[in-house]
Write a protein that binds this DNA or RNA. Structure first.
Lengths: 359, 359
DNA sequence: CTGTTAGCGCATTCAG
DNA sequence: CTGAATGCGCTAACAG
């Protein structure tokens, strides 16, 4: 019942396994034209499918790219996954998926599993953390990655480098200018001189912390006081919860004026959406009663109304770059352009005519 | 530089490779307590990582589940992927990802690649098609799958079975009651007696066709005439385009009345969102000027306003079931409950007080 | 309970 | 240009 083997094909074609191997895979010359045809026919008629495991064992290279994400159903990660997938296709490799919920221990496990499968490279997406609870986990993850690299593996990390990972050869990080972009966003928003509040993720999440820091910096540059920071979960539910609290605050405050309404910056789009939903549930309207901005520019959220002001990130490109850099100095050594983003102001932070046509 | 091998571990521990293998993996008894400890220590100190390829070769089982989707960044597929991933975790397997844009040839290729990697099972998501252009592709895909099954592989198909695939053993399909659910949706919508239009995908897409057929049936049962069907792409852009056309139609028609406004059923949520966006871009409002309904109940779209009436599908559960059924009669032979869905009427099809509180 | 002997399927040396 | 050996790293029958 098992698939037929190269040996069987060879026998049928009346040649040696070695020859069959050469015509079916190897790059060496095989102009035994008639022979080649015979072998190919034999393979075809037997429905021969090369055993990648055996090939991998023999060549010690698996043609696999490991991808680690928190949750593949999260649009942020699935966009990255698409980019990695594209890069994989270009490299004639397949992608192995692991989801970890962001727990360093799970990530360590995943790296181990990928290493066991002899993945040619590993891409790690998802924010790194510096929380004390994760300290040991991070250390173990770093050690595991280190070992993987030492054994010839290549890794591409998205965002921040892993804490404690020695910048071994084969260790690449695609860094996202979260801080700069957040500062830029703050600067543009500050023009309308509002009161600012930040909805951030749990303390220690690099991505979140960077964006918060950048935003505050932007505010400071504009001569504005630092914004309050509400810490919550790094997802829609967290945003919603924080939004509820803010709704109460807004409602309680004196009648807001056009130029002094609250501007809420959530450190990612889904949190922003959650916050907006919370406000709406309390009878408040965006941007009339409060402005809301996010970060990431998630595609699926593009039709959300009021259109969300945010910072656009080419998640797909980020994933692709992580995968291709890890693949080694193939096309361009350090040639791939650094990741950038663009502040995009949409209706959710509009100030002039909140009741004008939608953007 | 390569990772250390079992043999090295064995040597360091002063035992035979077989023994080392037994303590590190095998289930056979290994109460050589002291020996076991020695081996484990040796493994630890050497940073031993078993070579899954070699294990797979020896055991002829790879611990891999292949997943085929059109596009991993599409929320529909990423939700399914999450389910498959969960099932994989339960089975102590990893998932291999392939994206195909829905082209049967690519799917065939993917199946081949999975077969080469000796994936234990394959899950195929994404609508099947009966278009003539795809005829050959479908046939080849069916043949490839057939061969895979014959070689002992298991496949789980989501939605419709593959055209032409012999219902071999190891071939499971998780069918989604698209037609019934669409009929149900039509019935509930028909209560408000509106004019109906359907935005469907290209002819031949089973999922789309089933939903169209079901919806028409529901209309008929309610004593209503069949709705017009607009064929377009099975994505947001298609929905938008169709929405534009409909907007013109609506605007041109006589002033619509509350009970005779157009009700647009798009065969999936993203198309519905696209259509709604198109209407809005033309100055029309939902549900005041037209009602809109979708299908799937995509989670990321849940905060869209007006809230979209749709049919809820547990995509995650669907993915999970496909993966676990394909895994074989493990837990429950035919035990897993059939897939169901629920019609969910939200504000986008509301009729009574279009200007009342949002739902 | 442990060590020995064979392969799993293939890619490569090396001869011919 | 082709065929005959050897080994990739591991598991599984066999012995001992």
């Amino acid at each position: 019942m098992a698939a037929s083997t190269l040996t069987e094909v060879a026998r049928l074609a009346g040649v040696s396994p070695a020859t069959a191997s050469r015509v079916l895979n190897g790059s060496a010359r095989i102009p035994g034209k008639d022979i080649a045809v015979r072998v190919r026919q034999a393979a075809e008629s037997l429905g021969y499918i090369p055993n990648a495991q055996a090939q991998g064992l023999a060549k010690s290279s698996s043609g696999l790219i490991g991808l680690i994400v928190h949750d593949i159903a999260d649009p942020y990660f699935s966009a990255i996954a698409r980019g990695v997938q594209e890069a994989a296709r270009e490299q004639h490799k397949m992608v192995l998926l692991a989801t970890t919920e962001g727990a360093p221990e799970s990530e360590k496990e995943a790296v181990g599993a990928f290493a066991a499968r002899r993945a040619d490279s590993i891409v790690i997406a998802g924010s790194r953390t510096s929380r004390v609870e994760d300290r040991d986990g991070n250390a173990e993850l770093a050690a595991e990655l280190d070992r993987y690299c030492r054994n010839g593996g290549h890794v591409g990390v998205i965002g921040h480098g892993i804490v404690g990972a020695t910048a071994a050869d084969g260790y690449h990080v695609v860094s996202v200018p979260n801080e700069e972009l957040a500062a830029q966003l703050a600067t543009e928003l500050a023009a309308s001189r509002e009161d600012f509040v930040i909805i951030g993720g749990p303390e220690g999440l690099f991505t979140s912390d960077d964006r918060i820091r950048g935003f505050q910096r932007g505010l400071a540059v504009a001569g504005l006081p630092a914004a309050d920071v509400i810490r919550t979960d790094f997802n829609r539910a967290g945003g919603f919860e924080a939004g509820l609290a803010l709704a109460a605050r807004i409602t309680a405050s004196q009648p807001r004026t056009e130029t002094k309404r609250l501007c809420i910056f959530a450190v990612n789009d889904v949190m922003a959406i959650g916050a907006a939903a919370a406000l709406r549930s309390q009878g408040l309207r965006v941007p009339r009663d409060a402005a809301v901005a996010g970060f990431d520019d998630i595609e699926t959220l593009r039709d959300f109304r009021p259109a969300l002001s945010t910072v656009h990130l080419s998640l797909e490109e980020i994933g692709r770059q992580a995968a291709s850099r890890a693949a080694g100095p193939s096309a361009d050594d350090a040639g791939s352009p650094p990741i950038t983003g663009q502040v995009i102001l949409r209706r959710s932070t509009e100030v002039a005519h909140p009741s004008s046509a939608e953007s």
